[in-house]
Design a protein around this nucleic acid. Structure first.
Length: 151
DNA sequence: GCCAACGTTGGC
DNA sequence: GCCAACGTTGGC
C-alpha cells in the first residue's frame, strides 16, 4: 500500500465534486512522470486530494484508488482538450486510475501550513516551482499529514 | 543530440 | 494578471 498526492484545480474538479460522484476517472494527465506514477498505483492505495491554483492552495481531503491501469478515454475524444492524435486504442499512451471518495478534511491543510511542517525533500509539493500533478508520499509523511488534518 | 522557442502549471 | 520554473517540440 502506498500514499500519493494528486492535484486538481477545484474550479475544474474539486473534492466536493468527488463527494457527489463517489468514483471518478482521474483523466487528463499529460505528463509522463505523473503518468508513470499513476501506472504504479494499486487498488487500496490512499491519495491526498490537493486543490491547486486556488486560494489558498492545499490538501482538501482523502480518496482511495479503486481501479488501476484505466485507459484514459479522453485521449481518443477529438472534441476533448486532452485528445492525443498520437494515441490509438491498440496502443494507448495514457493510463490512469479510478479514485473513490473517502473524506473531506474539516480544515483544509493549506500550502503555508505544509511548508511550515515539511521540507521540500519530504514533500515535493512544497518545493517552489514544482509542477508535478501526481507524486508519491512516504508513509511517515502521510501519517503526519493525517495528524495535521485533525488539529 | 543540442538547444531555442514555445506552452503550461500554479503560486503569488 | 504576472511570471518563474520547467516540460515539450522541432529545426538543425
Amino acid at each position: 500500500m502506498q500514499y500519493w498526492l494528486m492535484k486538481s484545480e477545484p474550479d475544474v474538479y474539486s473534492i466536493d465534486d468527488l463527494e457527489r460522484d463517489r468514483n471518478e476517472i482521474w483523466d487528463g494527465v499529460r505528463n509522463y512522470q505523473a503518468r508513470n506514477f499513476l501506472k504504479s498505483m494499486t487498488v487500496g492505495d490512499i491519495a491526498f486530494f490537493y486543490h491547486s491554483n486556488t486560494k489558498p492552495p492545499g490538501i482538501a481531503g482523502l480518496m482511495k484508488i479503486s481501479e488501476e491501469m484505466v485507459v484514459d478515454p479522453t485521449q481518443f475524444d477529438q472534441s476533448n482538450k486532452y485528445y492525443d492524435p498520437k494515441s490509438t486504442p491498440d496502443a494507448p499512451r495514457w493510463h490512469t486510475v479510478t479514485v473513490t471518495y473517502i473524506k473531506t478534511f474539516a480544515h483544509h491543510i493549506s500550502l503555508d501550513e505544509l511548508k511550515k511542517n515539511f521540507s521540500p525533500d519530504d514533500l515535493q509539493v512544497v518545493k517552489r516551482g514544482n509542477r508535478l500533478s501526481v507524486m508519491p508520499i512516504t508513509e511517515d509523511v502521510a501519517k503526519q499529514i493525517l495528524i495535521l488534518a485533525k488539529s
